[in-house]
């Protein structure tokens, strides 16, 4: 438990505990240092009024040097938001989760980024190749090599 990743996550957790989460973000579960669930809601005017999503974070022992595996939860209760960067299986195409990850980013930092990604969405649609990707997608989104383009959405 004394590993760097556990210590770092413990610190993040206590910050969430003391400071609370930003508006629209809530901690759903953090029972261990391998997987956390957080809820995400876009505040203000957006394409997703009243919709609440859940984000699943999976950490490996190399966190924060390596990025966590982050995806939207798709089960009976939660769905994946309809967004040009989000696949229907919950996988997210965001460079900060892949090659633009930096060890100074945090769980809350990712949530805020994804929140603003949803908030800036103008047209609710799935990625072009959604069906093809979802058919073959690996369980862990980190195993997919996304190709990031200039963001125009």
């Amino acid at each position: 438990m004394a590993s760097i990743s556990a210590r770092r996550l413990r610190k993040e957790l206590s910050e969430i505990h003391v400071e609370g989460c930003p508006v629209g973000i809530n901690l759903l579960s953090a029972d261990n240092f391998e997987q956390w669930l957080l809820s995400l809601e876009v505040m203000g005017e957006s394409q997703y009024p009243g919709e609440v999503f859940a984000l699943k974070f999976r950490f490996d022992p190399n966190y924060p040097i390596s990025s966590p595996a982050v995806q939207f939860v798709v089960d009976g209760k939660y769905t994946s938001p309809v967004h040009p960067h989000v696949y229907s299986n919950g996988h997210i195409c965001a460079s900060i989760l892949g090659n633009e990850w930096s060890p100074v980013l945090s769980v809350i930092g990712i949530c805020v980024t994804l929140q603003s990604m949803l908030a800036s969405c103008k047209k609710k649609e799935r990625p072009q190749d959604n069906d093809r990707y979802v058919l073959h997608a690996p369980d862990n989104p980190k195993k997919t090599r996304f190709h990031y383009d200039v963001d125009t959405v």
Partner: peptide, 26 residues
């Protein structure tokens, strides 16, 4: 052809082209 112009500055990007990793290989 596509990886020739990856934009590193943008934190978000459109997934126009995706290289699918064969699960068996992975």
């Amino acid at each position: 052809v596509a990886p020739g112009s990856p934009d590193v500055a943008s934190p978000l990007a459109t997934p126009r082209d995706i290289i699918l990793v064969d699960e068996v290989e992975e």
